[in-house]
Each structure stands twice: as C-alpha cells, then as structure tokens.
Design a protein around this nucleic acid. Structure first.
Lengths: 347, 347
DNA sequence: CAAGATTGCCGAAACGTTTCGGATTTCGGG
DNA sequence: CCCGAAATCCGAAACGTTTCGGCAATCTTG
C-alpha cells in the first residue's frame, strides 16, 4: 500500500506538502499540485481512511436504526429507504450502515436510544438518518441534547428546530383541498396515515386550512387515520359512504394504496368516479402502482420518494460539518397532475 | 471522550498495561484487570475505533455489493439478506454496509469488480459477502487473486476452493429423489432455478445420482431451469404433464414458490396430489408461505435461510483473521419433513 | 542462598494522516 | 539593489491505540 510518505520520497517533497496538494489547499503551487496528482495516480495512492479519521475525529460512516421486525407492510418502504440511502451515501464517499436493533420488550424506544449511544461511541458513526418522526419524538430530543448530528426524513412539525428533508405535506393537501373546493365540494373526506406520525398532522392542518378558506368545516366522521394500506382505504370508504345523509362528495387519499382501496369500495357501492364522488390522492411514487393505471386516471399531487435520498444525504453531510440550522432544513417541491377522477360537485 | 491515557493517569498505571488489561492479555494480574475494568466502566470508556484500526490495519467493516436494480423477484430475497447480515454483523461488533453499484452497460460484471477494488482501497472494507455464485465466478476469481477476504453464500461447486457457507444442495435433492424412488417413482420431474447458478448444478447432480441408484435415467423433458417463481412452476408443470405418454409421476420443486405454481397447475389439470402425482420441494423458509399451508401438506427438505446469516458472518470474520481454508467451509444441515403430498407410484 | 524462571509492569515506537507555526524563496516597488 | 510582502514549502506534534523489547520484583529449585 502506498502511503503519503512514499509519495513524498518519490517526489522529493515533504509529506505535509503532498497532503496539502491532494486536499487542494491554497499554499501549494499549481505546478507541484499537478505533479503530485500525477504521481498519486501512477503509484495508485489511496488515503488511508483510518488515519484520516483518527485525526479528523470523524468516521465517514452514517447509520439508520430500525427495530428488527417492523411488520410486513413497512418492508417495502424500508427496503426502498435502505437501498436509496446506500446509493446516495456511496456517491458522496460515505458509508451507510443499517443497524437493526433487537426488538426489546418494555420501553418502546428506550432501546433504540441506547443503540444510538453505543454506535456513536468510539467514533464508529458520525450521524444518523431518522424516518417516521412523531410530533414529540424521543429519539430526536435525545440526539439534539447530546448534539449528535442527524437528519430527519419528515419533521416534527411546521416549525421544527432540527435538520430535516421533507415534502410540503401541509401544502399539498391544501392544494388538493382547494382543488376540490373550487369544484364546489364542501363535504370532503380525508383518509390519512397513523395519527401518531407528524406528517399526518401537517396534512390535516392543510386540509382544515383549505376548507376554512371556502367557509367549510371538517367533520370528525369524514376523517380517518390508520395504516396506509389498501384494506384500510377500502374499509374507510365503505364506512364513510354508508351514511347517505352525511356522506362526502369527494375524498382525499393519503397515498395510492389507500386510493386503490377507495376505488374498490366505491365500485362495490355502485358509486361512480367522478360523477358521484371525486377522488384525489398524494402519490409518493413508491409502489409499482401508477396513477395512470387507475380508471378513471387519478388526480394527484406527486413527490417522488426516490428523489429524496440524495438531498437527505446532503443535509446529513452538512449537519456533520456543522452548518447552520437554516441550511439544514429543506422542503421538496411537489407537482400537481390532473387526471379524470374529479368533477364539479352536483347541485 | 475518555481515552486510554485518561484511564492510565486515573489508575496510576501505564497506557500499555491498561490496554493489555482491557484486551485480556495474559501478563496482567487479576487484581489490576478488575480495577481497570471497573474504572473503564465508571469513566465510561470506549475504545476509539479509528485508532485501533489504524494500527491493526483493519476497519471492522464488511460489505455486500449488488447492482442497483436486480429485478422485483429478487427484492424479497435481497431484503432478507441485507437485514439478516446487518443483524449478524452487528452482534459481532462489526459493521455491514450495502453497496449498490450503479448499473453500467457493457461488461456484465466488470463494474462490480471495480467496485470491490475501490472499496478495499484505503482500508475502508475488510471483506465481502457474495451470494448467487456461478460455477466459474469472475468475482470470486478476482477476490482470490488479490487475496481480499470474502465468504460466499453457496459455492462454485462440490470441491470449491474458497470460503463459503452453503446448504447441502446435492444431498437434499438426493434425499428427495431417493424418497420418491423408494415409493416406486421412476419418471420424476425437477423444476429448479436458473441454469447459470452453481447450486442448480449441485441439485441436478444429486438428482441424477439418486435416479442412478435406482436404475433410472433423467430425461431432458422432465428437467426445467428458470426463475424461481410461481409462474415458472405453473408453466413448467403444465408443459410437463401435457404429454400423457412421458409425463412424470412425481415432481421435485426448487422452492415453495415453484411448488405453489405446480399445485395450481395440477389442480387445473385435474390431477390429484398425491394420488396421481407426488410433489416434494425444498423449503428455504424465506417467503411467508409455509408448507403446512399447502393442501395436501407438502413434503419438504428444509434449511432456513434466516439461520445462515450468523454462520456466514462467522466464516467471514475467520477469513479476515486469516484462518485455514478448511475452517472456512461450512455446510449447514437440512431437515426432512414428511407431509401428505407423496404416495406410492401406481401400477 | 544463588541462579534461573516467572510474573507484572513500563517506555517507546509505530500506524498514516492533518495541521500549526515557522522558515525559506520569490517577487514587486521604491 | 534592498526590503517587505506574498508565495511556497517544511518539521514536528498530534490523534488513540497496539506491540516490541526490556526491566524489576517475586517465586522456584537444587
């Protein structure tokens, strides 16, 4: 293995200067910089990471902690997350490790916190990626208190005080709500995710804001929180539309799986889309279902999950480098794609 | 962060002795060893990995390289592999990183090899886990030539010269074949995996050996190689049983998915299991399908995939530590579980 | 009790890099 | 041609650990 010293001897320079040349420091002449780079290539020199880490105090490794078995329906998304982050960090010269914390009994997230501590000890890991934040997330509080760098996919709330990369959950549901209201709908259903997740709250806020703009009010009966599954969408829709008096005229679905269930339910109830009911959804482009394959084509807001890994990795890198909080909070744009699943509200 | 020096000062010992005490060396008295351990706990000392790696020349990180998008039906198994290995290496104090090599055009596996080199440079990674070996695998040859430690899940052949952890593919198909032959079956079908994988060859050898023991010969028409999917099992079975003259009286399935397809096909062809056709399979316990849920209950050999990650990690650890090749080749046992899907051959 | 063996300990060097402070050379301006 | 400033360069220390060789005290043995 060729070292910096080998290079220095070979070039008749000092180790210092070779190091500075390779790291692009200012006080090294253009000529020697080129000479050094050429020699480095020729002797195929690669910096020893361990040595670099020892002096820099950083390991170049980041992690993602998850409990061992999170349940079947989370597998698909977990897989996408792991592969996406692996790729993103690889491209940035960092390494990404998945750490599966054994499922311990007792305190829900205590063991996960202990895992964070263990991993950060001895400089094994520089930082973490978190997903699925709760409004008041213990993990986030703990990491902040111990000033361990991290980035959250999503955020704890609209005014979160931590590094994150998120989609505009508030905005996109507001957009969908306005779209439906503009068509004359006032009784709108919202079938969203599990109540304890922060993004569900943001979406609900967007929903209520949109309704308020048009002088409408949400109804407890038209609000459903539960797992983002086709089954839940189906059951929720059947329940919502079972009361003919108060049934909604339009439904907003948290994702495409839920929309799938809603389509099934409406078809079974002999309700036509969009004549009887308008349906819209948010498309996170994770499953293999595409909104164009719905019939009639689904109107959606879209923000691709697979495009979030890169920015997420950037934010974590910057967080580790100690940048300002305001540079560490990014919100991704979404697009609105009009389909054929909405129509003006009837009479 | 407390270092060895802090500990040494605190205990009024030398750094050397503290280090040796913590690493359980022989020339340190029991008394001081206990004293040192107590102090380490109290000051909550954790060895700095980077420093340790710098001197030992090892990183404590191992990797698994895969191309970015390997196709849907491989996802399930890839996911199981990644989570299983993550957990196994965590338990051994090592870190496991998944590296997704971008899908490049041109030479099939050239880019993967380059990836191995890059990762091993600068001491980033100590070794690799490989899966799905071919009989003459370029990756394996390359790693051996450059003496980079690795372990293969599976092996290139019966007399492989590399570290591996494998199930007894030859033996288990031999077992199934003998079982069927003992029941009087002579025309037996084998629906197995893609031809280029080494394990498919081993299984085929076991099959032919078993047949030969009973004086039977394999037939080209009763041998199918293809993807391990339900669809392939279904199509293969239909084709095999379409020729009434030469149709088999029993079928061996490469895994449970294939068996599922075979059950479907036989049912559609109005062939009863086991009265008309006996069916057996190998169960790798990866999917959520269980052989008991087949009707009639499937007779299988079983070797759980999820139990292979630990031994696999052990072998790689030992390979990195430079143990002898013969200690680095492990074959896991399988069990035979008799169901209700076989019966004596008729007439 | 002397001589060798054993036990428990220590100082110093090494791993390969970055960085601090200072030294040397070169250059422009008077 | 000289002087200060800018441009390049360098030695040495530091990061935290392991390990090699040696040293002193204690124990064993004849």
């Amino acid at each position: 293995m060729t070292t910096l010293r080998d290079l220095a001897r070979h070039l008749d320079l000092s180790v210092t200067q070779v190091s500075r040349a390779l790291n692009g420091h200012s006080d090294v002449s253009e000529a020697t910089r080129l000479r050094v780079e050429a020699a480095a290539r020729q002797l195929n020199y690669f910096p020893n990471r361990a040595a670099r880490r020892l002096v820099s105090g950083r390991s170049g490794v980041v992690g993602f902690v998850e409990r061992s078995f999170a349940g079947i329906e989370r597998e698909e998304i977990l897989f996408a997350t792991v592969t996406g982050l692996s790729e993103a960090f690889s491209e940035r010269g960092m390494q990404f490790v998945l750490h599966l914390a054994p499922k311990a009994e007792g305190h829900e997230r205590d063991d996960i916190i202990r895992t964070y501590d263990q991993l950060v000890r001895g400089g094994s890991l520089d930082g973490f990626v978190l997903t699925g934040p709760r409004p008041d997330d213990v993990r986030i509080r703990h990491l902040m208190e111990n000033s361990i760098p991290f980035v959250v996919h999503g955020r704890t709330g609209e005014a979160a005080q931590h590094p994150f990369f998120d989609i505009d959950n508030f905005g996109l549901v507001l957009h969908l709500t306005r779209h439906l209201c503009a068509l004359g709908h006032r009784r709108i259903g919202l079938i969203s995710g599990p109540e304890h997740f922060a993004y569900v709250h943001s979406r609900q806020n967007g929903f209520e804001t949109g309704l308020a703009e048009f002088g409408a009010a949400p109804s407890r009966a038209r609000l459903r929180n539960g797992p983002m599954t086709e089954d839940f969408g189906m059951v929720s829709a059947v329940q919502m539309f079972s009361d003919p008096g108060d049934a909604p005229t339009a439904v907003i679905c948290g994702n495409l799986r839920i929309a799938k269930g809603v389509y099934t339910a409406l078809s079974a109830l002999s309700l036509r889309i969009p004549e009887d009911v308008s349906v819209v959804a948010h498309d996170d482009v994770v499953a293999h279902a595409r909104p164009e394959l719905f019939f009639p084509a689904l109107t959606v807001t879209r923000a691709s999950l697979s495009e979030s890994w890169g920015p997420l990795a950037d934010v974590l890198r910057d967080a580790i480098e100690g940048k300002e909080l305001k540079e560490l909070q990014k919100i991704s744009p979404y697009s609105f794609i009009d389909g054929a699943s909405t129509a003006p509200a009837r009479g």
